[in-house]
Write a protein that binds this DNA or RNA. Structure first.
Length: 107
DNA sequence: ACCTTGACCTTGG
DNA sequence: CCCAAGGCCAAGG
């Protein structure tokens, strides 16, 4: 696991505003624009090992499902932030909550 | 070096 | 809407 990649992922996750979310795949996509792309699974691996220090609950699956094994804790945080949820309240309404960083217009 | 695993994604049934 | 199958890429045994 490359430290640089880990840092890129974590710093990006930190930028996700409260009440909004990003899918693993989207994170992989954005990070991949500047670094070697790993794919959604690698992002998941990073979050599993190093995600504790950042708002990990704002990263969900593409279908709005919460991280396996952490649904309860994640849901608590998301509700507290007023994140849009699906009718049954067990998943995130990705269509409304999806967030993307503004394009970096450097140089 | 080979095989299995994983906080994934998309498609088809 | 849920489930299974394939594709994906790196880490760990």
């Amino acid at each position: 696991m490359d430290d640089e990649y880990v840092e890129a992922v974590l710093s990006l996750v930190e930028r996700i505003p409260a009440g909004r979310v990003m899918a693993y795949g989207t994170v992989a996509e954005v990070v991949g624009e500047s670094l070697a792309r790993g794919g959604p699974r690698l992002v998941g691996a990073v979050m599993a090992s190093y995600g504790g220090a950042v708002p990990w609950w704002r990263v969900v699956t593409a279908s709005g499902r919460l991280p396996p094994g952490h649904e309860v804790a994640a849901l608590r945080e998301l509700v507290a932030e007023g994140c849009p949820l699906s009718p049954d309240g067990t998943r995130v309404d990705v269509r409304r909550a999806a967030w993307r960083p503004r394009p970096t217009h450097d140089r």
